[in-house]
């Protein structure tokens, strides 16, 4: 036996085995032990843990959504180790939050238990990927990508806009710096859903808006309910707190005039309705919405689904959100004359 090999067999190899297995033992402990003895032994985790322990998801172990310690995800592992080093090293406190990668992994867990909601969401524009949002020539040609886009599209993106898409101008051609992001959804489940809310809380408590700047999720019930104005008139708004989430992105311009920018607040015949009275929460589809309220015919006797509105055709100039009887029927009620 060569002496070098003997040394290897007698000392280095056992030492290596010891190190590797102690790491496995350690990560294994974190993977399988009660969260109260692992994740939740850090005070930073206690409020999250307390919320989770009375939530609808309390029967799921942390690792079932967040992934366990026994993982080959190098990013997750280094992030965790860095946090521990920073904490005990007395460095500047970093808020604990999920990386975008972790959020996308988590999303698979959502899908496994909520396949129908997931499928509905996938069918909607809210599932649009980074390529669809940030490489659209029509959009980029009129307004080039800005940091602010990430407020509603890609709110969890870990980086700045120049790290996502290039060039930041209106001439293009535009490409994603990481092609793997092309199909990743820009509005994942966590953009709107609050997972740790107590099971018994009101529906709006289970919804949230994730504000990228504050790195904070606001429960829908705490979001502002803005006044929407039509001229000087204050439009009647549904009391449904869930729709405060919608208006965060589908928002009017600064003067809050009805229908400006991306505002879809209903006025006209539908004034006072909640977004969710007509739209399916996940698919956004309003295809069945008329039938949920109207008998086939409106009080004027016309089938509401064939009226000339944007419900029937996107080309119509009568936006279903704001259409009023008088828009089509001047001073009279057709069918009754």
């Amino acid at each position: 036996m060569r002496p070098g090999f003997g040394l290897f067999l007698g000392f280095a190899l056992p030492a290596a085995v010891f190190l590797v297995t102690s790491a496995i033992g350690s990560f294994g402990y974190f993977h399988f032990a009660d969260p109260a003895r692992t994740c939740n032994s850090c005070h930073e985790m206690s409020s999250q843990h307390a919320e989770w322990s009375v939530s609808a998801h309390r029967t799921l172990h942390c690792r079932e959504c967040h992934g366990g310690s026994l993982t080959l995800d190098v990013h997750a592992l280094t992030a965790h180790v860095n946090r521990v080093v920073q904490h005990f090293g007395g460095g500047k406190e970093q808020p604990i939050r999920l990386t975008e990668q972790a959020i996308h992994v988590l999303q698979d867990s959502c899908r496994d238990c909520h396949p129908q909601s997931y499928a509905d969401w996938q069918s909607s524009r809210h599932s649009a990927g980074y390529a669809r949002i940030f490489l659209d020539p029509a959009q980029n040609g009129s307004e080039h990508p800005e940091a602010d886009c990430l407020r509603c599209h890609g709110m969890f993106f870990d980086g700045e806009i120049h790290e996502l898409v290039t060039p930041l101008d209106t001439t293009g051609p535009w490409t994603l710096k990481d092609p793997a992001k092309a199909a990743q959804p820009t509005i994942p489940c966590l953009a709107c859903h609050r997972i740790h809310t107590p099971a018994a809380a009101a529906p709006a408590e289970h919804l949230q808006f994730y504000d990228r700047r504050e790195r904070t999720a606001f429960a829908a019930s705490l979001l502002p309910a803005p006044a929407i104005l039509q001229g000087d008139r204050r439009v009647e708004i549904s009391a449904d707190p869930r729709q405060r989430l919608c208006v965060q992105c589908h928002a009017p311009t600064a003067n809050h005039q009805l229908g400006t920018s991306d505002d879809r607040t209903p006025a006209g015949v539908h004034e006072g309705l909640s977004c969710l009275d007509c739209h399916n929460a996940h698919s956004n589809s309003a295809a069945l919405s008329c039938r949920s309220c109207h008998p086939a015919n409106s009080h004027c006797g016309i089938d509401v689904e064939v009226m000339d509105t944007s419900f029937r055709s996107r080309e119509s100039k009568h936006d279903i959100h704001r259409v009023a009887c008088g828009d089509c029927h001047e001073g009279q009620r057709p069918g009754k004359n």
């Binding site: 010891f18 590797v20 297995t21 102690s22 033992g25």
Partner: peptide, 15 residues
């Protein structure tokens, strides 16, 4: 033996 010891130390240390 080293492997077992390592696992035990790792898990114990974490505990």
């Amino acid at each position: 033996m080293m492997g077992l010891a390592g696992t035990a130390v790792g898990a114990g240390g974490s505990a």
